[in-house]
């Protein structure tokens, strides 16, 4: 019958034993996990965290590319930040950036990326490969090349677009600089969202869609009631990533150089002009810090949504 053994004598050092014994799947343990992450964290610390902290510091000084302040920058506290907040050019850039992010990332890339993923969701074969291939091509080509391709496409006299529309001489980059870079960035970045949503849609159990269809749900209702609840985590994480990427994207400079008259001078371009072209490094660093703070707010906003919608 019951083969009970003698009760255990209190084993000494039991806690230490349990701690030495790693419980993760591969038996890494914290020490080895730390070793695995150390090289990556070291590089990140030196080439990312350190420069970032340096930017924070520079933002508090009058550091310039040339002149007396290049050798001995003055510490001026928050003056640069105050100056930025009173500068209409900064606010213009901020609103342009918001337009750029909303237009090209949130509406353009997410909307188009999702549409393509949805259209092609249960297709196989050459059509799907062709569409996906072209979209991804726009994403992996070097920015020097694609920006030039768009300069050619939008050229007022011999550009393909004007030829197709039959309106030779229409100056897209001068008359509609924001529209141009928004459409350009949509074209450039849709691939990431498309691939992400493609994978996410693949994870929606077909039986859920089928039972919705049996219940008579329209395409739109299926999207809202079945698909979206399944992928909303993906949607928010994707939005977070591409919002951050777009916010800090410098490529619009290659199309319009921020012009004309700063009408497409998004913050990334604004910083470049202030810091590199005018040489006001301290002020530029302060602007970068402000951008960091705005990004932080955006990120926290998305993460909040992510948490509350789980």
């Amino acid at each position: 019958m019951a083969q009970a053994t003698s009760p255990p004598d209190a084993a000494p050092g039991e806690d230490a034993r349990a701690r030495r014994h790693s419980t993760d799947a591969a038996g890494l343990g914290r020490v080895r996990a730390a070793l695995f992450t150390a090289p990556a964290l070291a590089l990140i610390a030196v080439f990312l965290v350190f420069p970032a902290l340096w930017v924070l510091y520079l933002g508090l000084t009058t550091y310039r590319l040339t002149g007396a302040d290049a050798a001995e920058p003055q510490f001026v506290g928050l003056d640069n930040f105050v100056e930025a907040l009173w500068d209409p050019a900064f606010w213009d850039s901020t609103w342009l950036t918001v337009e750029f992010v909303l237009g090209s990332a949130v509406v353009g890339q997410v909307g188009l990326g999702f549409t393509i993923a949805w259209l092609l969701r249960d297709r196989r074969g050459p059509l799907k490969r062709l569409v996906e291939g072209l979209v991804i091509l726009a994403w992996i080509l070097p920015s020097a090349v694609v920006s030039f391709l768009w300069v050619a496409l939008l050229d007022r006299d011999s550009g393909t677009l004007n030829a197709l529309l039959g309106i030779p001489g229409f100056p897209w980059l001068l008359d509609h600089p924001m529209l141009s870079i928004v459409v350009f960035n949509t074209w450039r970045g849709t691939a990431f969202s498309m691939m992400l949503y493609g994978a996410a849609l693949g994870n929606v159990p077909p039986s859920h869609l089928e039972s919705a269809r049996l219940a008579g749900a329209t395409g739109w209702q299926q999207l809202r009631d079945v698909v979206f609840p399944h992928i909303k985590g993906h949607v928010l994480t994707n939005l977070l990533l591409i919002s951050l990427w777009t916010f800090n994207d410098f490529t619009p400079f290659m199309l319009t150089a921020g012009g004309p008259d700063g009408r497409s001078e998004v913050l990334a371009v604004h910083v470049y002009k202030v810091a590199v072209q005018s040489g006001e490094l301290g002020y530029g660093a302060a602007l970068s810090t402000i951008i960091l703070l705005i990004n932080l707010v955006v990120a926290v906003f998305y993460l909040r949504l992510l948490r509350s919608k789980r």
């Binding site: 255990p8 084993a11 039991e14 034993r17 349990a18 030495r20 014994h21 790693s22 419980t23 038996g27």
Partner: peptide
Amino acid sequence: LEAATGGAVVIGGRDVTGVQ
């Protein structure tokens, strides 16, 4: 694969409770 919170596992006369 899980660390015991208390007690002992003995296999073939060998206490393996803390063994990988």
